[in-house]
Structure formats: C-alpha cells, structure tokens
Write a protein that binds this DNA or RNA. Structure first.
Lengths: 256, 256
DNA sequence: TCTTGACATTGACGTTACGTCAAGTTGTAG
DNA sequence: CTACAACTTGACGTAACGTCAATGTCAAGA
C-alpha cells in the first residue's frame, strides 16, 4: 500500500522542475533513494518519496547544503539548531557581498575619474612586515592608527556604506547584550564571527582577505573597545563593551 | 634592471598573506607567472610581479573570479565593463541571500510555534501540472491569482522583507527609466535579470527554484504591468511600465 | 525478425580556487 | 656522509550537479 502510485524519474522531474540527473544525484548520495528499481535498474518513486522530496526542496530554497538537509531529515529535532547556524552563515555572506559591492562601486567611480586600479598609494607607507615584528600586545594601538588612515582614504559613499554595516553589527551587539545573552553562547560567538569577517575585510589590516584575522589582533581591538570610551559608547557603554570583549575572547579561544 | 630584487615564493607569501600553494596555482593558470626559475625549477618573483599581484589581490577582494581578473589585466580598457557586470552579479546574489534569510527566519519561527517544516498546506490546492496545460497567453492572470494567494500566506515579517527588496528593484527600474536608459541596453537587461531572479524565488510560481523563469511567464507578467494600473503605478506610470515591459521583452528574446 | 527510436542506465570529466598530502629533488649545515 | 629545511611536481578532494559517451531495454513499424 505504500508502493501505490509509482512515478518514473521523468514524471517526478516534470512535477518538481528538477532534472533527472539531479534525482539520480540525490539517489547516489543517499538523500533521496528511489523507492524501487525494476529488473532493468529503472528508478521508481512512491508518494512518500515525493513528500520527502518536497521537504528537501523547501530546505534547498533556504540555501542549506544537501548534507545538512540529509542530517535534518535524519534527526528532525536538530532542525532549529541547524537553521539558526545557517542563518548566521547567510548573514555573514551578505555582509561580505555588501562590502564587495561598495568597494566595486568605489573602484568603478575611481576608474571613471581616470584613477588607476593600482591603488598602491593607498598602501604606501604601510609595510606588512612590520606587523611580523610587532609585539602582539601593541597591536591594539597600531591597528587603530592604520585603520584610521585607511578610513580617511575612502570615498564618501564607501564610508557611508561601511558605517551602515558596522552600525547594523553594533545594533545586533547591543540587542544581544540587552537581551541577556551570555558571552559564551553560540549567539554571541556568531556575532564575534561577523565582527571578525568585518574586520578581515579592511584592506591593510592583518588577516585582510584571508577570512582569518589573527587572534591577537582581534583580542587587541576587543580590549580597546573597553578601554577607549570613543568605542565603548558605540557598543552600549562599558557594560556593552565588556560584553563584546568577553564574547570575542570566548570566540577566539574556542575557534578552530 | 627589471630583475633586480628577486623574492622567493615564501617571501612573497609572507608579504601578501597568501600561501605558496596559491602562488603556484596562479603560476599554473598563467595569472601570475614566476619571473624566473633557477636551474632547480625554483620560482622567483621581481618587483613588477609584486605590483601585478597587488592588483590581482585588490580585484580578488571585489569577488571577481580569477579568469576575469586575468582578462582585465590583459585588456585594461575592459575594466569598467567587467566591473559593472560583476556588480550586477553581486546585487543579484544579495537579493537571493536576502530572500533565503527571510525565508529561514519565517521557517524558524514556524518551527518554534510547533509548525512542521512540511508546509504542504501552503501548496495545497496548487497543482503544478495545471501550468503545463495552460495556454501561454493566460499565464498573466493565473500567475497573478496564485502569487496573490502566496502573498497572503506569508508572515508579516517576511512580507515586509519582500516588499523592501521589490521596492529596491522598482526604484532601480524607475531610476533607469528616468535616466533615459534604453530598454535594449545592458543596464536594462541586468535589471530584467534581477526581476527574473526575484520572480523565480516565489514558491509556487513557474520556474521556482530553478533560476530559469519560463519566457512566457515573464512576458505575461510584463504585459500585465502595462495593462494593470495597480502595477503600472509602482513602476512609474504607463511610461515606466512600458519601459519595463520592453526591457524584459528584449532580455527574454536575447538570453541564452 | 530486424531496425529504429525513445528513454533509461552507469561511468567519468568539467566547474572554482585552492587545501592537503605524497614523493622526489636540491642545497646546506653539522 | 647525512640529516633537514625548503622547494618542486603530481594528484585527489571540495558542492551540486551539467554534459557527453557508451551501453541496455522495450515497444512499434517494415
């Protein structure tokens, strides 16, 4: 009775808009095994399989990778956890793309004004090697000086876009702090990860472009948020800044 | 004199934060050939190569694929074109991610309320096969009816997010129309592509999830924008709606 | 019965930008 | 002479399939 109403692979494909190749792929990786094969190895799917496929497609629309979809189908109680983790990934990606967009816009407008793309002048006076010699403890001040220089070198529009994104992050930090989220909670670590991604996108900063910001640099900045009222104010006063520092500290010591 | 100041692969790696593997990769694909090899096939880079690498990294930060970076370095006059095309891709991606985010949020809140992820009720009464029987000309009205139904089934937050993204698209359409952009220009086609992506993300609509919206459906909606003042108003009156229709028509007839 | 489609199957390579071994070579310090 | 560091060239793995290619099955027409 569960085998009633069998569908061929092309029927399923037509109903869902997928290709037969995709269905064979899902079969191959075990995500959606065919209900049965006839003597010629031809696949057939029953209604239960179609229901499963329905769910798979809904999850796929959310951008979830197939292996995580498979995992969720195995243990439905992990649904919310997986989705919330996924949500953080998505937000981080949007942050990164937004940064690429504003940088691209600035680059285009510079090119139209005749400026070359080789903006070595932006980096001039900046020597990466000096960071290698720096004592980790001093990163805080140095990082601040360099990021300030970088900031002043940007166009007005780009600055605006950067502000918006940083403001969103700040708002999320404050909200988390006020909601009583613990610094060692997954939510706080997710924010720390976004902060890292944001920092890593600053040209000239250590870890630029690699996605991995050196731990000492992250910690140095976190300390600075607490020590410097100019920053502390943004993050919701001393209490908020301390929360940020603790969250980043926890995140850094537990990553990888 | 151009060979002065040669750097080993590890030196370059340390200066840029890249790995030696990456530099070898760039050599292998011809993006950044080593300046010279010694008798033991060991790579050395001169200052000119470092400058080229500098440019490569700046472009990579913008999210440009390596082959397009190589292309731009070959023909610098194409810089602006390539970047503007790239910008459209980035924007489309952000649109897609934003949609995934709001859908994920809705799904999570539904799960927390105890609703299952198998939201077949959302699709109930909706039969994909009926679209296959539809005459293409009738898609306009049917699509409208179904998208209206879908719209009413959403949560308030998700509706809000959708509105924002659609509003952004509409604003861009109006701006393009007012700037005197031609419906058969690349800019207009880029907007049409975004419109397609946006439409394709509506569950229940033809082409949902595949990224490819059937041509007749796109055209049917475009006609509707002109015919129905409720839509025309959004797109800047009859003139704006006609521009949208023309741009979509051109886009559809020239894609693939 | 033989042939010809129509539709299915299982490989297997291509895509993107490298990470990660593995195995071999070269130069140098002890 | 040897151990070791640093380099080299393969070659596989990654995500989610698209796109052939070679082969197999089944039914209808000559």
């Amino acid at each position: 009775m569960s085998k009633r109403n069998l569908h061929s692979i092309q029927e399923v494909a037509a109903e869902t808009g997928l290709t037969s190749r995709t269905l064979r792929h899902y079969d191959a990786i075990g995500l959606l095994p065919a209900t049965e094969l006839n003597h010629a190895q031809v696949r057939y799917y029953d209604d239960q399989a179609l229901l499963r496929l329905q769910t798979i497609l809904v999850m796929r629309e959310l951008g979830l990778p197939l292996d995580e979809i498979a995992q969720m189908l195995q243990s439905p109680q992990s649904e919310i956890d997986v989705l919330e983790t996924h949500l953080n990934r998505l937000r981080t990606k949007v942050d990164q793309l937004s940064q690429m967009i504003s940088s691209s816009e600035t680059t285009i407008s510079n090119l139209k004004k005749g400026k070359s793309i080789k903006m070595s002048e932006m980096f001039e006076g900046f020597d990466h090697t000096k960071y290698q010699d720096e004592v980790e403890q001093r990163w805080g001040k140095k990082a601040y000086a360099d990021s300030d220089k970088w900031w002043r070198s940007m166009s007005a529009e780009e600055r605006e876009s950067w502000k918006q994104r940083q403001n969103q992050l700040i708002a999320d930090w404050r909200e988390a702090a006020e909601a009583g989220i613990k610094p060692d909670s997954p939510e706080a670590s997710a924010l720390a990860a976004r902060q890292e991604a944001w920092l890593g996108s600053i040209p000239g900063a250590p870890g630029f472009g690699s996605g991995k910001v050196p731990a000492a640099y992250l910690l140095g900045l976190a300390e600075m948020y607490v020590a410097d009222p100019r920053f502390g104010a943004n993050y919701g006063g001393l209490v908020g800044a301390t929360f940020v520092k603790d969250a980043i500290t926890f995140y850094v010591s537990n990553r990888k």
